[in-house]
């Protein structure tokens, strides 16, 4: 028997002898699915309840900061309140109908006076002079991937209307068209302004950029501007993940 014939014989034998294991393909997937993407049986309605509870808790904490941060006892109280934000917790993220339980880590910025939980398996936080920039952890060296980012900025010397004008100018100057401008409750109570590029201008329509801005007015002359940048194909991935992180955004006060 020639060498190729032997080789073929051995291969056929191996395929034949391992045929029965393929019956376990589906059950093996079920185990993987259960381990990686555990289903969380929670009613959607509960998210709203949770949001209300979080908002009440957040407002209470702001009040306590204001009340107690002016003296020594107050500072100690503030410290303990800071400890209320656990360093790590689990968060449910719903992507394309599937629910994922993610480990998220607390990112505190006392200068910008906010906290936010970050999914550090996907993202990293870069502290800049006047803002925090959240970028994908994975660096794409050889592939040209459109920008994905979330920048958190604080404004105290500008009115809300002026900030809205600035955002609108920035979107239109980037060549994007505004397709959403409205008050929203999710991921945080704020005004959202969203700009989308023209798909016809991109070789791959999926690369069309989306710039989403949230303007959060704390009501005390303090405005937060959160700018998210992603692209059409990533809308159901990063677009959702960025908002899930933003859902945990809380204002803290150092005054």
């Amino acid at each position: 028997m020639s060498k190729p014939e032997w080789n073929k014989k051995i291969k056929n034998h191996l395929i034949d002898q391992t045929e029965s294991i393929t019956e376990l393909k589906e059950s093996t997937w079920q185990n993987i699915d259960k381990e990686l993407f555990p289903t969380v049986k929670k009613k959607k309605r509960r998210r709203r309840t949770k949001q209300v509870i979080v908002s009440i808790a957040g407002a209470a904490m702001i009040m306590l900061f204001i009340m107690f941060s002016s003296n020594e006892q107050g500072l100690a109280m503030m410290q303990s309140i800071r400890e209320i934000f656990v360093e790590e917790k689990k968060q449910i993220v719903e992507l394309e109908g599937n629910k994922e339980v993610r480990d998220v880590h607390l990112n505190k910025n006392y200068q910008l006076e906010y906290v936010l939980y970050v999914d550090e398996s996907y993202y990293k936080v870069i502290e800049q002079e006047n803002s925090d920039l959240i970028l994908p952890k994975m660096e794409f060296e050889d592939i040209d991937v459109p920008e994905i980012s979330m920048e958190i900025m604080q404004h105290t010397d500008i009115s809300k209307d002026e900030l809205i004008d600035e955002v609108i100018t920035e979107i239109t100057d980037s060549g994007l068209t505004i397709n959403q401008e409205e008050e929203v409750m999710y991921p945080l109570e704020s005004l959202v302004i969203k700009g989308v590029g023209n798909t016809e201008e991109y070789a791959n329509p999926g690369d069309t950029p989306i710039h989403r801005y949230y303007i959060k007015d704390t009501g005390s002359g303090q405005l937060f501007l959160i700018k998210q940048v992603y692209f059409l194909t990533a809308a159901e991935g990063h677009g959702v993940r960025l908002n899930s992180m933003l859902e945990t955004f809380e204002v803290i006060s150092n005054n």
Binding site: E96, Y122, G237, H238
Partner: peptide, 9 residues
């Protein structure tokens, strides 16, 4: 590439 972006499907 899609998995890296979190696509379970």
């Amino acid at each position: 590439k899609k998995i890296k972006k979190g696509n379970q499907r």
